[in-house]
Simulated assay, not measured.
Amino acid sequence: MYLDNEEERILNGEEGEAKKIAMEIILRLGDFYGAEKTVKINNAHISGISYKNIGDAGIDFLEKFVNEKVAVKTTINPIGFDLDFPEFFTDDDDFLKKQMKIVDIFHRIGVIPSLTCTPYYIVDIKSGEHISWAESSAIVYANSIIGARTNRESGISALASAIIGRSAYYGLHTDEGRKATHKVILDFSPEFFDYAVLGLFIGLNIRNGIPYIVGLKNDLDALKSLGAAMNSTGSIPMFHAEGITPEWKIADNAEEIIHVDKDDLRATKEKFSVDIEPESVMIGCPHLSEGELYAIEAYLRNRKLREGKNLFLFTSRHLKNKLMNVVSKIEKSGAKVFSDTCMVVSPISNRYKILGLSSGKATYYIGREKIKVFFSDMETVLGMVTYES
């Protein structure tokens, strides 16, 4: 892979050990994927922030960068608990201490302490902009809905890119790498919840590729849910939606065609869901948007939490602070609204045997932890743990 003079200096250690390590990571990635050069990036988002996910080995790796600063505006994923209510999520002092050590490291290297999987609600990313994002749901949103350009980075490669302000130029950074591989035609008009199930279906059936989808509606929250689910069951970092996403007019070149009907969605839902009443309901994977918080507040306005049930909602601290009045109204029902974390990266899900979820992504990952999931639309799961008052 071609390196310019500055990159050669970095690789030789002339800019410090941390930058040298970062450059080596990008170089190895570029060589593996056949990149001819690097590309300068304007933004980075780093995953693998929860101690639950990275453990002591992750901390050891991060400590290599504590004396360096990120070169571009950088945000980070959720951690293992809400900073305001750590004791609610765990009583393990070692977990709390090590999680805060991770947060401190990122603070020292200059990242924005966003602690959210929805950085696109916080930073202004434009179509065509080269970025380096790790977080499966955010990658799809950035590439598909915004039209920015990022590969499916790991937390390690996104950190490396943040440190040197560069990524390897291959895959989704190129025009060729963004072309559709499959054409998915919907033989029905999808409702909101269908997008989560459709995402699971597409991931399972395409596995690795870029779908061009015909028949979707222009609903950003639904498209967010779709992308998060498909990049969980499959490795699908981007989709094109006919008439909606920025690059759809130049992407309809796929030869393989897949038709999807309601029976396909029913079968997919049954694969991931049990017909058992949940002990608790958790919503917000990816983190809830402003519109979703308003919708939940409207639904819960005259409802109360059932005895012995729990309702946990997850959003970014940015939106929680912005919508404190809405959050207060939601919590009058008995629900709890958390930030900085979610049901996937915190230990909270492990307390329960059966959870009610409306997220395709959360259903996939939590189901892998041997927790049973009642998977359904948001109103249905909300109704199972609340009653009209």
Rank of each mutant, 00 (worst) to 15 (best):
F106N: 06
A158W: 07
K183S: 10
A160C: 03
I156V: 15
I156L: 14
L159I: 09
F61L: 14
E176R: 10
E63K: 12
D104E: 15
R166I: 08
I131E: 05
I76K: 05
G128F: 03
E153M: 10
L83R: 15
N151D: 11
N143P: 01
K98V: 04
A134W: 00
E68V: 07
I164Y: 04
V72I: 07
E87A: 14
L62T: 01
S132L: 13
T181L: 08
T116C: 03
I105M: 11
V103C: 09
V123L: 13
I131D: 04
H182G: 01
A71F: 15
V72S: 07
A148K: 00
D175I: 10
T90S: 05
A148Y: 07
F106M: 01
E135R: 06
D187L: 15
D91I: 14
D60E: 15
T181A: 02
V72D: 06
E68H: 12
V123W: 06
L186G: 02
I102E: 08
D175S: 14
G155C: 12
V184K: 09
A138R: 07
F88S: 14
I102F: 05
H182M: 00
F85T: 15
H173N: 03
R166F: 02
D187Y: 14
D60G: 13
Y120F: 14
V72T: 10
I112L: 14
Q99A: 07
I146A: 07
D92M: 04
L115N: 10
